[in-house]
């Protein structure tokens, strides 16, 4: 069982949460270039190791969260309200290597 330490609710089973994609991915609303939109839709990092990503606490506070997780071990080392700057001060960016 994997616990996620929700900043609002405390540690809860990961089944209460929904994975909501890599952090920092932004739509470029200033363009209607299909290539740009397709890249946004289909392409993401898929690193083995530490990632920064969003989660949604579906069966709890129903807030979006930002977290750093190791994709090899599923260890969480940091969970914070959505949009928080990461422990390294940077905001966003899917892979936190």
């Amino acid at each position: 069982m994997i616990l996620i330490d929700c900043p609002y609710c405390g540690p809860r089973n990961s089944t209460e949460f929904r994975h909501a994609g890599e952090a920092g991915k932004k739509r470029d609303v200033t363009t209607n270039d299909p290539a740009v939109w397709r890249r946004y839709l289909y392409q993401q990092d898929n690193p083995l190791g530490w990632v920064r990503e969003n989660w949604f606490h579906t069966a709890g506070c129903r807030q979006f969260l930002c977290a750093e997780r190791n994709t090899q071990t599923n260890e969480f080392r940091w969970v914070a309200p959505a949009g928080s700057p990461g422990p390294d001060g940077a905001s966003g960016n899917g892979s936190a290597r």
């Binding site: 990961s14 994709t71 090899q72 071990t73 599923n74």
Partner: peptide, 13 residues
Amino acid sequence: DPYPSYSMRGSLE
């Protein structure tokens, strides 16, 4: 499993 991972552990769920 409902999130990306390279972990090959089973789960009770």
